[in-house]
Amino acid sequence: MMRAMRQSLAAYGFLFPWLIGLLVLTLGSFMFSIYLAFTNYDLISSPTWAGVSNFKSLFSDHLFYTSLKVTLLYVVVSVPLRLIFSLLVAALLNQEIAGIGIYRVIFYIPSLIGTSVGVAIMWQNIFSRNGLFNLILQSIGMAHPPAWVSDPQYAIYVLVLLSIWQFGSEMIIFLAGLKQIPDSLYEAAAIDGANRLNQFFHVTLPMLTPMIFFNLVMGTINAFMVFTQGFVITHGGPINSTMFYVLYLYKQGFEYFHMGYAAAMSIVLLVIVGVFAGFLFLTSKFWVHYEGEEGGK
């Protein structure tokens, strides 16, 4: 009993700075945002109470559903692809060979360059009608390749590709996780006669599950929050085919002056992402392996 109390006390000591931020900044603005969802708020004058009318109009808003569909598609396609790609590259880069540092930097550069307007222009250039990508396709015999980034059918996949191209942060987290795996485990596995592939599946992957889980959860949350790509590269078009949820929310709030509506959208988003994240946390009991906790031999 005493020990538990002492530990609780110590914990709150460690948490003290974070609790200040929670009480002063986070809780206040979090609650305020929820409050805004029930108001008419145009950003400029004070909010006025509106009950649930924002939610009512939300559920009859055609574009709301479109943006939700676009975002879900983006999440479902980009998150797993990015995860697998970054994991493979990280495994490749986790070797002690000459020049590995250079490769790591090169692979990380796309993520460092961000999604500025400069990146937008070069990306539009590569995936335009007669861009580099189509020149390659034509040279291997495809007569009429689509205009990717300005074709409503394909534009979203160009943005997915961009997000995979910027796989650097996941890669680094995996690299950090790989460094945490003790060599002794590999040695033991080698003695048991496991080859490299076996080692990967029986040592590397299980030991890396906390980081896979982290990247999965954060990748999902961040993919739901996707904004900049749609904002600077496609402006949500053509025909709203890249109108991401947060992009639409931003337009409603800052361009159409319906901040109350945008706040209502953010509550709905919170619930949806919460359900996804909650689901991932529930499944984590079955596949995430923490060396520091029960189950670690």
Partner: peptide
């Protein structure tokens, strides 16, 4: 560390990441 409200606080921290910053900005 084990302490009261641990899961609740942790959940809340995760939730703050699920609100777009465009909203909490104001």
């Amino acid at each position: 560390l084990k302490f009261k409200l641990r899961s609740l606080l942790f959940m809340f921290m995760l939730m703050t990441m699920m609100l777009p910053m465009q909203i909490t900005l104001i």
